[in-house]
Amino acid sequence: MPRFPLIPTLVVGLAIAAMIGLGIWQLQRRGEKLAALQLYAANLGKPEMAFPRLPVGDDNLFRRADAYCLRVIGWQSQGGRSVKGTNGYRHLAQCSTGAEGPVLLVDMGVAPDPKVQPAWKGGKVTGTITHAPDHRPLLAGLFDSAPKHLMLISEAAAPGLEPTARPDLSSVPNNHLSYAVQWFLFALVAAVIYVLALKLRQKPKAA
């Protein structure tokens, strides 16, 4: 009779336990995301606030805020959508807020050409708080607990630009339940396949 494969069984068991653990973690993340969505929905109706100058977490996402751009020190662009629903390139102003203050990032509107240089030089801005573009690798973002940087989407566009569409709750994905189900299914499939493999291994060979 073939010997019981102890080490392979331990390896498969650990892999299955890890998959189940990831599924449970995704269920926990789902609960956290639901609570966050409730907070964001409440933020939509809160009064205007001063834009937070330092990364302070996501508690103020989707809330209206104002800030003052002392002067524009640079521009960057990335894909985006205007309030009219047309696709183009969002033009983000990198603003100085003081001699030693942090750089303020303000979305000043959408244009068809990413190379457009808006004539806006700065001033008071009112808009909606959202996340600044994050260029970290996906895995680094998942396991980095540091607060994400924030930016302001201006309600009034710079000359020659269309205002960028205000962020809405539908832009916040909450697919953790489907991820959890996938991990649980992976664990189940791995267990079934391994049990079948053991049965085939222990089946007597024909003489």
Rank of each mutant, 00 (worst) to 15 (best):
P8F: 10
R63P: 05
M151F: 03
I7W: 02
V172G: 04
V189Q: 14
I7V: 14
I7P: 04
Q202E: 13
G57T: 05
V12Q: 09
R29Q: 14
C69D: 01
K199V: 05
L200P: 02
V172F: 09
A17H: 05
P8L: 13
D113P: 02
Q202K: 08
L10Y: 14
R3W: 05
G109P: 01
V181K: 13
G45E: 09
G74P: 08
N87Q: 08
T128C: 02
P163R: 10
L198V: 15
P102L: 15
F51G: 12
Y40E: 02
M1Y: 01
L188R: 10
A190G: 03
L54G: 06
D113S: 11
D59S: 15
C95L: 13
K203A: 14
S170G: 02
E162M: 00
A41M: 03
R136W: 03
R166F: 03
A65R: 08
Y179D: 07
I24V: 12
F143E: 07
A158Q: 05
T164R: 00
K46D: 03
V192A: 11
G74T: 13
D134F: 01
A191V: 07
I73S: 07
R136E: 06
L61S: 08
I7R: 12
L188Q: 07
A191N: 15
E100V: 03
Q94L: 14
L22D: 08
I16D: 02
M19E: 07
R63H: 09
V192M: 12
H91G: 06
V116G: 00
A93D: 03
S170F: 01
P118H: 04
V116C: 04
K33W: 00
G45Y: 09
G23Q: 14
V106R: 04
T97D: 15
T126P: 11
L37N: 12
D168S: 03
M49W: 12
M1P: 02
P133Q: 10
G141F: 04
S171W: 03
G88V: 00
S145F: 14
A187H: 14
F184H: 05
V110M: 01
R166I: 01
P47G: 12
S82N: 02
A15Y: 09
T164E: 02
P163I: 09
Y40D: 00
H131L: 08
E48I: 14
V103I: 15
V83Y: 01
P147C: 09
M151R: 05
L6F: 13
P118W: 01
P47V: 15
A119T: 11
P137W: 02
V189L: 15
K84G: 00
L39W: 05
F186S: 15
T97P: 12
Q78V: 12
Y89P: 11
V192R: 12
R166L: 01
L70W: 13
R3Y: 06
L22G: 08
V125S: 07
F184D: 04
K121M: 06
K33N: 00
P137H: 06
L142K: 04
I153Q: 02
L150I: 07
P8Q: 09
V125K: 10
A190E: 05
R29W: 07
Q28P: 06
L198A: 12
L10G: 11
K148I: 13
R201S: 05
E100G: 01
